[in-house]
Design a protein around this nucleic acid. Structure first.
Length: 424
RNA sequence: GGAGAGAUGCCGGAGUGGUUUAACGGGGCGGUCUCGAAAACCGUUGUGCGCUUACGCGUACCGGGGGUUCGAAUCCCCCUCUCUCCGCCA
């Protein structure tokens, strides 16, 4: 969420910039400022009365020792009266704070100046393109057919065990999964990221910290008996490590990476583009997360984009990088680059990574702050994350693009991990 | 699942109703001494909110929430978590 002081000091700017995200903020911002004025005023009154009560209580202690019971009774009466007033004010305060917070969490992050207006994904801007689109012969198969043909990937079996969207990998398919995970982790660690293997379930506080709750509650699997949520991405546990943490400026950049399975209900996304591995409920992903000084976060974003780009080049997959327009960028992000690989049999671009700078938006919610070295004041840090990478669509593209009459060729870089160079 | 113990500041740890404005120790930071360092000594030490040009002042915070009281770290209730023992178990 945005910082209330920032909103107060930049009211017009906030309203203007949020238009890029097609969000009309005028009314809500005005209401936020009005409630905040009221909150300040109420607190001033409350603090004043509380201060008097505290003084009286101390005095009563002294009077007791001196045996002045009459004066004690008078002070008690006054104190009781004030206490009633404070109680009322306290209640108003809680009320105001709740209302204020409810409004604040509805305001999206301000987009970076490079974000262009637009309604949806069709207006995203292509930044770069790499690789050659493979020309497949007429008998080329989509990956779900290839999975069956080579006995490496079985959707029907997953359906039997669990349900739709829970594929089963087997044989060289299973090994390919583990190889990709290991490759991505090695690349991240070589780039200076610290590996984290976090829990796959998180509590409510963590869900709120990264913003899955309360908005996207329906997107997470929930275990009611213990009130835990299956993580939709390892961004959730890995970023929540820093919830309520005050870092030192010298700690930057904090670079963490983690592999986890991810669980998504994908409620409401039926129909097109969901076949095979294009959209599943459980998938594997290596995530990279950085926490950075506000002055350097955009350099860091570029660095992360470069990292993801290098992975795709090493895997020899044709891809394009899109800068998301205002209508497609997420609620919490200031600037997002999507990576899409081309799956040649489906003749489709598939999103495999989304790299974002959230600036202070997540940090405000997480209470993730830092101090300049030697400084006393805290300020929110910037958080960034990206997939590096999500597996299913990478596998889809490898299977489809690399199919030959002899079998599916494994990208050179992976053969050290797989121990084979063809699936046949 | 059963029984018990506990949660205090950066860390350890005292505190069971009123100079707690949280003792004491360690650590960190600053200083004195020194060519420099160590040791010693002196000082200092958190977070949020509000007020203030500023120095500061007020207020809240002792796991979380509520209650009793003029006054709560301390008493009561609920919740969460941790530890120990027993049971079960990879």
């Amino acid at each position: 969420m945005l910082n209330i002081k920032f909103i107060r000091e930049n009211r017009d700017l906030v309203i203007e910039r949020l238009k890029i995200k097609n969000f009309d903020a005028k009314e809500i911002i005005n209401e936020i400022i009005r409630l905040d004025d009221l909150r300040k005023q109420t607190q001033a009154e409350q603090d004043k009365l509380q201060s008097e009560i505290n003084t009286i209580s101390k005095k009563i202690g002294q009077l007791f020792k001196e045996g002045k019971t009459k004066e004690v009774d008078i002070s008690k009466e006054r104190s009781l009266f004030l206490k009633e007033e404070v109680k009322q004010l306290h209640k108003s305060m809680q009320d105001l704070e709740k209302k204020l917070n409810d409004l604040l969490i509805q305001v999206p992050n301000i987009p970076h100046e490079s974000v262009t207006p637009g309604k949806g994904e069709n207006e995203n801007i292509e930044i770069r393109k790499w690789g050659k689109i493979p020309e497949l012969n007429s008998g080329a198969l989509p990956h779900w057919e290839l999975g069956k043909k080579y006995d490496i990937l079985d959707f029907d079996l997953g359906n039997k065990l669990t349900g739709a969207g829970f594929p089963v990998f087997m044989n060289k398919g299973a090994k390919l999964q583990r190889s990709l995970i290991q490759f991505f982790l090695d690349e991240a660690v070589n780039a200076g990221y610290k590996e984290i293997l976090p829990p796959l379930m998180v509590n409510e506080d963590s869900g709120f910290g990264t913003g899955q709750l309360p908005d996207k509650e329906g997107q997470m699997y929930h275990i009611p008996s213990d009130n835990l949520y299956l993580i939709p991405t390892s961004e959730v546990p890995v970023t929540n490590i820093y919830r309520d943490v005050i870092l030192n400026a010298t700690d930057f950049p904090v670079k963490n990476t983690s592999f986890t399975p991810c669980f998504r209900r994908e409620a409401g996304s039926y129909g097109k583009d969901v076949r095979g591995l294009n959209r599943v409920h459980q998938f594997d992903k290596v995530e990279i997360v950085q926490i950075q000084h506000p002055d350097h976060s955009y350099n860091t974003l570029d660095e992360m984009v470069d990292h993801v780009e290098s992975l795709l080049i090493k895997l020899e997959l044709p891809f394009r990088i899109m800068r998301l327009c205002g209508g497609d960028i997420s609620f919490a992000s200031a600037l997002t680059y999507d990576f899409e690989v081309y799956a040649a049999a489906q003749k489709k671009w598939l999103e495999v990574s989304s790299v974002s700078n959230f600036e202070a938006f997540q940090a405000n919610r997480l209470k993730l702050r830092f101090k300049e070295s030697g400084g006393k004041k805290t300020q929110p840090a910037h958080t960034l994350n990206g997939s590096a990478l999500a597996l299913p669509r990478i596998v889809a593209a490898i299977l489809e693009n690399n199919q030959t009459p002899e079998g599916i060729l494994i990208p050179q870089i992976l053969t050290d991990y797989t121990g084979f160079n063809i699936i046949c």
